[in-house]
Amino acid sequence: MFVAKHVRLEVELSIMPQDNSSSATHLGGEDASGQMVKHGVDPDRLANLRAILIEPKVRLLQQILASPTGALSAVELAARNEITESTIRDHLRNLQSRDPEIVTALEADASPVPNGIPRKYYAVTEYGIDLLQQVNLYDQIGVLYEVYEAAELELPDSDERSVTITDVEEYEHRPLPGWL
């Protein structure tokens, strides 16, 4: 279902004319009477929609939102995925660098942070939630929440770490997004 929606949206986006001369592109079409109808399209929003429709990125956004705290560290996301922490951080930085931000970085509320506990956590912004809702990828988050509650997760390279996933998840000074 995700692939079909993604392909349909990509096809729709790829046939849209590109007009970089203004902040909005006007698409033309005819109504039932044959009159031209113009629709305002925000090219920045389209670019952001395309950005979140890349499978690892949409999965990261959904996983962050499916967490009890609404914010996860890169190491927690690595425990939920088959991609490296480094790749996860790259995706999150890309989503954070957009205007407006799709993801925001939050710092732990205490200093110093215990050894092995992440200092930086990522939360999806209200704009990011709006994008997910627009492409009908927000409603699955409740199911993911239940899946992760039942799953036995393990940190990558857990043998070499001084903490467990439970230690990270239960850290009392982890930040919460402002919308939670």
Rank of each mutant, 00 (worst) to 15 (best):
K5I: 11
E126H: 01
R93K: 14
T125Y: 02
R59E: 07
H26F: 13
P114L: 00
E126G: 06
R80P: 01
M36H: 10
A66K: 07
I141L: 06
E76T: 03
E160N: 13
E146A: 05
G34F: 05
S158P: 01
I141W: 05
W179V: 10
A151C: 13
N94W: 00
L72T: 10
K57I: 01
N48H: 05
A66W: 06
D130V: 00
E82R: 11
V143P: 01
A24N: 13
A105Y: 06
R80C: 07
I141M: 04
N48E: 14
R8M: 12
S22Q: 14
S33V: 03
Q18I: 14
L137D: 03
E107P: 04
Q18K: 09
V113A: 00
I64T: 04
D99A: 09
T69Y: 07
E126F: 00
Q35W: 05
A74R: 13
Y148T: 05
H173D: 15
R45N: 00
H39N: 02
E76A: 12
T104R: 11
Q35L: 07
H6W: 02
L61Q: 05
M36R: 09
S67C: 02
N136M: 10
V103H: 03
L9M: 11
S23W: 02
Y145S: 15
L77G: 09
P112F: 00
L61W: 00
D157M: 08
A47F: 03
V168T: 02
N20K: 15
A71Q: 08
A24F: 12
A51R: 09
I52C: 03
A110V: 12
L180A: 14
E55F: 03
A79R: 14
R80Q: 13
L144H: 09
E172G: 15
R93E: 06
S73Y: 00
E154W: 01
T125I: 07
T87L: 07
S23C: 04
I15K: 14
R45E: 15
L155H: 10
E10I: 09
V41C: 14
L131M: 08
T164Y: 09
L53Q: 00
Y122E: 03
D139G: 13
V11H: 10
A108N: 09
E82K: 14
